[in-house]
Design a protein around this nucleic acid. Sequence first.
DNA 1: GCGTCCAGGTCTACC
DNA 2: GGTAGACCTGGACGC
Length: 298
Amino acid sequence: MKLTILVPANFNFWRTVYSHGWSALKPFSIDRSEHALHRTLELYNGRISSIIISQKSIESLLVVSGQSVNPEERKDIIRQVRSCFRIEEDYTEFYREARKHRKFRWITRAGAGRLLRAPTVFEDMIKMICTTNCSWSLTEVMINNLCQKLGIRSGDNQYTFPTPSAISSCSEKFIRKEIRAGYRAPYILELSRDVADGKLDTEKWRSSDLPTADLYKEIHSVKGVGPYAAANILKLIGRYDYLGIDSWCRKTFFELYKNGRKVNDKVIERFYEPFGKWKGLFFWLDLTKHWHGKKDPF
DNA sequence: GCGTCCAGGTCTACC
DNA sequence: GGTAGACCTGGACGC
């Protein structure tokens, strides 16, 4: 199967793939030799499809799969890919704002700003919890384990991201020891059970009309999701009003603007305050600007 | 190889 | 509202 997905004029495939660490976490993987992003998807009807996404032209993405799919499955693949690459989102206002600042004009020229996300908010939430209080290598271990031990295997030996029900059927001990999530296990389990039972509808957040502050409170109320995680989940929903500062961001900010001298988070927040509702995105792109000149930032 | 220390966000208890 | 300590793991370091 081959299909083409049209993209907006300012779309940049690689800057989206390398926008943050998600493309290095299963079921995403980067194929450097083929210049493509791999992803194993679970379709609406339970069928598993491993796809390879690459930039076909300036105007379109090419999605290839070894399997044949029916028209409805094809629609679902397109829907999921469009959502991961944020193709629906309108960045006109953001680019207009970026053009006003000399140091951020590169953003508009580069077509940067789209942050890669998972097909579901649930997957983004679990991944974000797994980035807290640990090294990136441990995050990779936890996510690999979740996919390999609880996901569904595809024909080409890849795994899907597990469903809320798959995770919620496990014991806390299993998630703690086998997934290696440690003390995060009860948080992962509670979130999965609440989503599986329908007590928490994380997917509605992407289309919510709630003011961002209220949405932040709701996301923050999930156990294991603190200020850093809630702010970064918001960014993947399309709200950039919070910074989501972690130790890497602090260190990078100190090096960029303070000659390595440590400053309070409030100083960082004041620095990006002029960027209003886009400050979280300016903050992230500012700190990762040096990635954008590199072929492979990870 | 083993033990110790530290970094990394979030939660809870306490002031 | 602010702060201390616990949570758990991997990595660095010293022995």
